[in-house]
Amino acid sequence: MPPAHVVLEADSVEQLLSRAYEHAYENGWTDGLPIIPATAAGVQEFVAASGRAREEIIGILPPRKGEATVEVIAVNAIMAGCRPEYMPVILAAIEGLSDPNFSLELMQVTTNPMCPLLVINGPVRKRLDINSGIGCLGPGWRANATIGRAVRLILNNVGGALPGVYSKSSFSSPLRYSYVCGENEEDNPWTPLHVERGFKYEESTVTVFRAANYHNISGGEGQGADEIIRHIASQMPPMFGAGDGAMLMLGVNHARSLYEGGLTKRDIQERLWKFARLPVSYFAESFVEMERHAGRCDGKTVWRCSSPDEFHVLVCGGPGPQDVYIGAGMPQTRTIREA
């Protein structure tokens, strides 16, 4: 179905913008925030910036099996406030989300507030000013704010994840507006995420994760590597649906301390796996039973993850004794093919 063309008339630019926003909202095209109207010329510019054909289908999005063509993606990217040069990032993210192993359909319809988290690696971060340092998961950076928003509008408008219609997310989540950051490769003393996942250092990639939460961990500074990891692990309790995995975004301070303490990334994964456990007596018996079947319980303790491999360790953000823990897994990485 070709995108609908709408003619709006107004006496002033201000009135036209206001009408465009009202029209888009009433038709259910927005996340509730104001949008930039997608004009034919704008769509053409965004399609050109993608380097792909207008009608190329990037993914079929569940549950309503909507075709995410380059053109439809462009319309949503414009509405979200993107720049044309963000298009390749959004296309790569939609490719990753459409992978059959990602189980996007569950995310689109479940009562759980799970949502996509996009981690961006490589030189594209600098070119597009994607924040990977101070404030990388917060407001203030157009690329971080609008790329994630474009993905959300695509999931709603193409996939049909409209709250209360196909999406049954009981609470939903503020993370569904936009959840995007770059990895702080410059302050990462180890291997960055995309290299770990088999891509070249100089390649630009987006990795999509299925994410359940956001939890900032403060403190643990100045006590040595072992204490830092114990403190972090204490903030990672076993949780329902833990099979997806756990992400630790190390802040710059702790990354440096752990590195200077002689720890490799593998050491960190193994220690998190060992320390992120709690006694079975803390939990409902039914939960313990479920975790035992899932391989996350030894009879005495319940574990956050069943193996060290399920911990994804990244370096993001700016200086300070802060880290971020996200219940996240099922990563899918795609190369960003800049036009």
């Binding site: 909202y25 259910g28 408008n157 219609v165």
Partner: peptide, 8 residues
């Protein structure tokens, strides 16, 4: 009124 851009 159901705000939806998709056929429901």
């Amino acid at each position: 009124i159901v705000r939806s851009s998709v056929p429901i």
